Computed example of a mutant assay.
Amino acid sequence: MISSSRLIARRRAIAATGAAAALALTLAACGSSSDSSSMPGMDHVGKAAAPSPSTTASMGDMPGMDHTAAGNGLSDTQDGYRLTSKDSTLPGGKQTAYRFTVTGPDGKPVTGFAVDQTKRMHFYAIRSDLTGFQHVHPTMAADGTWSADLASLVPGSWRMFTSFTPGSGAGMGKDFVLSRTVTVPGQATRTSLPAAAGSTEADGYTVTVQGELMAGMAHPLTVSIAKGGKPVTDLQPYLDTYAHLTAFHEGDAAFAHLHPTTKVNGDHGGPDLSFHAELPSAGNWRLFLQFQTGGKLHRAALTLRVG
């Protein structure tokens, strides 16, 4: 026979064990819930922990201090890789250079990069109102310092994006998009974003975009190019494709690169080009399409509404 005191002690132990198991299940459920909050279609860039509102507010107003965003190119760090630069301001009204370095998880400058679309580094500059788009390919010095030569910048806040793939180390084979902000001194005049439209004109070409996109979902997007009312069939390869398409989100300038799926076959591209589109956020996106004919690079821009 078990004494009453020993029986009570045993019951209390069983109850404690049950409570611990329930707590473990609750914590596990919380962990799986946080994992499900990540946005679909963001596998091209890494994820980071979301900052507290106070952190966002304190760092968002400082040029170059961009540790607050995740999964959209708006952070200067990802998986131990960091974009660093001494340039927090750049002069306006003339050609200038933005100098930067990418450091790895060991804190040392990265000098080995894989080739992506014929380049080891893609660099983009965009003003906060999504004007002034520039896509250039910087050069790297032996010490890992990159220099991006930029055309004249107008006053305002600009975001500088770097897109690269490490050729070795912990991030080997993974795509990274990191960015920092700079200020161009002077009287800044904000330009309103053009309304969403299905087509636009550039250098005598008509560019039409077809596709109903929903945020966080993969969709096909078709770009058609015509000139003088006739389909264009003489597109030349540019960066190993017939067109390069980049998008920026209104309000925060979040970055997205839309990947082409049309195969390249000499100088006979067009008129229809297919893209794999995954835009993570609803709202207006400003699309910049670059394509080449007769050895000349053209650029078309239009606003696309994502539901």
Rank of each mutant, 00 (worst) to 15 (best):
H244C: 05
P260F: 10
D143S: 13
S33Q: 14
V232P: 08
D61E: 13
D43K: 12
Q292W: 12
G64I: 07
M59K: 04
A9I: 08
T17M: 04
M214I: 15
H44I: 08
L90F: 05
T191M: 03
S3A: 06
D272I: 10
Y81N: 09
L258A: 07
A253D: 14
T118C: 07
N265F: 06
K174N: 03
T303L: 03
D203K: 06
H259P: 06
A202H: 02
A9C: 06
H244W: 02
D203E: 14
M160L: 15
G41N: 14
Q290V: 00
A19D: 00
G216Q: 15
V232A: 09
G31W: 01
E278A: 02
T84Y: 03
F164D: 11
A114C: 08
T84F: 00
T293C: 05
Q236F: 08
S128L: 08
H249R: 04
F123H: 13
L287T: 12
S168H: 09
P185N: 04
S58Y: 08
H135T: 14
M172G: 02
A9F: 13
M1Y: 13
F100N: 04
T103G: 01
S179C: 05
A195R: 10
H249F: 14
G132H: 01
V207P: 03
A170N: 06
T241P: 07
T181C: 02
S147H: 13
V177I: 07
Q292D: 11
A142L: 11
V45E: 15
T96A: 06
L130R: 07
A151W: 14
D43C: 03
D143G: 05
K119F: 08
P166R: 11
D87A: 09
L258E: 14
P40F: 11
P40H: 10
S4T: 10
S38C: 02
H219S: 05
P271E: 00
A125S: 12
S85W: 04
R10T: 13
A24M: 05
M59S: 08
M160R: 10
I225Q: 07
G294H: 07
N265M: 04
P271C: 06
P166D: 01
V306E: 02
R11S: 13
A114D: 05
A70P: 12
I225Y: 13
F176S: 02
G104C: 01
T68P: 08
G64S: 03
G186L: 06
T56N: 11
A24W: 03
K86L: 10
D143R: 07
S85A: 03
M1Q: 15
R127I: 02
G107C: 06
T162Q: 09
V177R: 00
H259W: 13
G204Q: 02
S199L: 07
L287P: 12
H135Q: 06
A114I: 01
D43N: 14
P231A: 08
G92D: 00
V306Q: 01
Q236K: 04
S5R: 11
T77V: 14
P40I: 01
A170I: 13
T17I: 10
R127S: 15
A57Q: 12
S224W: 09
P109R: 11
S33I: 08
I2Q: 09
A22G: 10
E201S: 15
K119T: 12
H257F: 09
T262E: 00
H249D: 04
G64D: 03
A243V: 00
L273Q: 05
A226C: 11
F113P: 03
N265V: 00
